Simulated scan of single mutants.
Amino acid sequence: YDGPRIWRWTLGLVPAAARPGVSGAGPLAWRTLTAYVRGTLIVAFIDALFIGVGIYFLGVPLAVPIGVVIFLASFVPLVGAVVSGALAVVVALVTQGVFTALMTLLVVLVV
């Protein structure tokens, strides 16, 4: 609602000589940021959905909460999906045994 007014106020903080450059770069940076977040959201959803469904069919308990953790952790670059996938494997190992843990690891790696 107040985006344009906030942007004009922000431009007022920038020195007058730099305002044209910042004025052009701001909207481009915003589009880039929103595209990055949208892409991360899609990848996180796909990871959580397919890993969650996979571990559900393997009989791993807490499949839905683990899927939620995978979704949220996927927003942490590089390590989030790996750590949350390891959580799914550990839960499978503790509750179902080695074979199910290996199958869970396979599901995580395939996704």
Rank of each mutant, 00 (worst) to 15 (best):
G3R: 08
G3Y: 11
P4Y: 07
R5S: 12
R5Y: 09
W7D: 11
W7V: 11
W9M: 12
T10Q: 15
T10F: 15
P15R: 14
A18E: 12
R19M: 04
P20G: 12
G21N: 09
S23R: 15
G24P: 03
A25T: 05
A25D: 07
G26A: 15
G26D: 06
P27W: 09
L28G: 14
L28I: 14
L28E: 15
A29N: 02
W30N: 10
R31H: 09
T32R: 14
T32E: 13
T34Q: 12
T34V: 08
T34A: 08
T34E: 09
Y36Q: 13
V37E: 11
V37Y: 08
G39D: 05
T40A: 13
L41A: 09
I42P: 01
V43A: 13
A44W: 00
I46R: 15
A48V: 00
A48Q: 00
A48Y: 00
A48N: 01
L49C: 02
F50R: 10
I51P: 00
I51G: 01
V53D: 02
V53W: 14
I55M: 07
Y56R: 15
F57N: 08
F57G: 04
L58T: 04
P61W: 05
L62Y: 14
A63Y: 05
A63D: 02
V64K: 13
V64G: 04
I66W: 07
G67T: 05
I70R: 03
F71H: 02
A73D: 02
S74Q: 07
P77S: 10
L78R: 10
L78W: 06
L78M: 09
L78Q: 07
V79S: 06
G80M: 02
G80S: 05
A81I: 07
V83K: 10
S84E: 03
G85P: 02
L87I: 09
A88D: 08
V91K: 06
A92M: 08
L93K: 04
L93H: 04
V94L: 13
T95C: 03
Q96E: 14
Q96T: 05
V98G: 01
F99Q: 09
F99P: 00
F99M: 06
L102C: 01
L102K: 07
V107P: 03
V107S: 06
V108L: 05
V108R: 03
V108C: 10
L109E: 03
L109W: 06
